[in-house]
Design a protein around this nucleic acid. Structure first.
Lengths: 201, 201
DNA sequence: ACATCTACCTAACGACCGTTAGAAATAAAT
DNA sequence: ATTTATTTCTAACGGTCGTTAGGTAGATGT
C-alpha cells in the first residue's frame, strides 16, 4: 500500500529496475532461441524499445548481462527444486528424486527462459562468464548429489552418484532439443524416466 | 600401387580433395570447441595455411561447409553403430542396445569432432542448414527406434520408444558437457547407464 | 613453346558488431 | 522557476565478418 505512494525518488529507481528486468527477460529469450553470439545488442535493445547504447546504463557489458541471465537461470531451478523438496520431507528418497526431476523439467520447459538459456549457451559463452558461473553451478550440482545420494543409499560411491546425476540431468536437459508442448507432456516424460529407477531397499 | 603412378591430372585432383578434407576436419574441431557463430573463416583458413577467400574454391559458403561437417557427423556415428551391430546379430536385444550406446559414445567422445560438432552446433545453426540435415537425422533416429523397439519388445508403444530414445541419447550426448578422458571412462559410464535397463522377458 | 587448368592470394566491399562520449530529454527536488 | 538527477538517444570509433572479383604461380597438357 505504501509502495505506490512512496516519494518519487523511489518510483524512478523502480522504473530503472523494471527496465533492467525487461532487458534480462528479453536477453534470456534471445539467448535460448539464437544463442549468445548471435544475440546483437541492437536487436535486444529494439525489443525493449531502446537503442543499443542505452543498455549500458543498466549493464556494463554484454558479458555481464549474459552472466546475470545465466546466474538467474541456475538460481531459478535451484530455488524451485529446493522449495518443493522442503515441503515434501514425508516422501521417500525415490519419490523425492522423481519430484525434483519434475520440477527441474517444468522450470526448464515452461517457466524459465533463463534456465534454458543457461543450459544452451554455457558451452559457447566467453571463459570469463563461465568462470563467474562456477560457484552457482557447483551449488546446484550438490543439490542433486544430495537427492541422488539419499536415493542410492549409504553404500553409494561418489562415482555412482556422479554418473547417475549426469544420466538424469542429461536425459532432462536434452529435452530442450525435442520437447514440443503441443505433443509432449512433462509428467508423462518424467514417469518414463522414473520407470528406469528401481526402488532401493 | 597404381595409385601413386597415375597421370598427374589425378594427382592434382587428389590434392584438392585432401585440402578439402583438412578444411572439414579443422572446421569440425572449431565448431565443437567454439561453435558455428564464433568460427571465423579467417581463423579457419589460417589453421590450414590458407587465406579466407581460398576456402571458396572448395566450398560455396560457410553454411555449406558447416552443413557438410554436420552431415558427416551423423553419418559417422550411424556407420559406426550399424557396422558394429551387423557383426553382433548373436547378441540379445538388450546387449545390442548397450553395444550401440558404447559405440555412439566412443565415436562422440574420442573419434569424431564431426559428430560432437553436430550435436553442439545444431541448435544455433542457420535454418537452411538444419533443413538440410533433417533427412540424415531422421535416418539415425530410426536406427535407434529399431534397437530400442527390439529391446522393449512387441508390446512397446511408439511413445515409449521415443521417450526411451530421448532419455538414452540425452544421457549420452550430454556427456559432451562433462566427460574428461583423464578422469572418466566410456565403458564405465555405459555400464552405469546399462544398470538402469532391466532385462525384458 | 605455348596454352590450359588448378589452387591459392590480394584487396576490397558492405554490413554488422560491442562499446563510448556527450548531448538531450524527462522527471524530481528545491 | 531553476537546479539536479535519472534515463535514453545520437553519432561515431575501431574492429571483424562473410563474400567476391580479379590476379598469379606452378603444374599439366599439347
Amino acid at each position: 500500500m505504501s509502495e505506490e505512494a512512496k516519494p518519487s525518488r523511489q518510483r524512478s529507481k523502480a522504473k530503472a529496475a523494471e527496465a533492467r528486468r525487461e532487458i534480462l527477460g528479453v536477453a534470456a529469450r534471445m539467448m535460448r532461441e539464437i544463442g549468445y553470439a548471435d544475440m546483437s545488442l541492437r536487436d535486444l535493445a529494439a525489443e525493449v524499445g531502446m537503442k543499443a547504447g542505452s543498455l549500458y546504463y543498466h549493464f556494463p557489458s554484454k558479458e555481464a548481462l549474459a552472466s546475470e541471465v545465466m546466474r538467474l537461470g541456475v538460481e531459478m531451478v535451484e530455488d524451485a527444486v529446493k522449495g518443493e523438496l522442503e515441503q515434501s520431507s514425508h516422501l521417500s528418497a525415490r519419490e523425492r528424486l522423481i519430484l525434483a526431476m519434475r520440477i527441474h523439467l517444468k522450470t526448464l520447459l515452461s517457466e524459465s527462459d533463463f534456465s534454458s538459456a543457461h543450459i544452451r549457451c554455457y558451452p559457447f559463452v566467453p571463459d570469463t562468464v563461465r568462470e563467474e558461473l562456477k560457484a552457482v553451478r557447483r551449488a546446484y550440482n550438490s543439490v542433486w548429489n544430495d537427492i541422488i545420494g539419499a536415493y542410492l543409499g549409504a553404500a553409494a560411491t561418489p562415482v555412482q552418484i556422479r554418473h547417475l546425476r549426469y544420466t538424469l540431468l542429461g536425459a532432462m536437459n536434452w529435452s530442450l532439443e525435442w520437447f514440443n508442448s503441443d505433443r509432449d507432456d512433462v509428467d508423462t516424460y518424467v514417469a518414463s524416466i522414473a520407470g528406469l529407477l528401481p526402488e532401493q531397499e
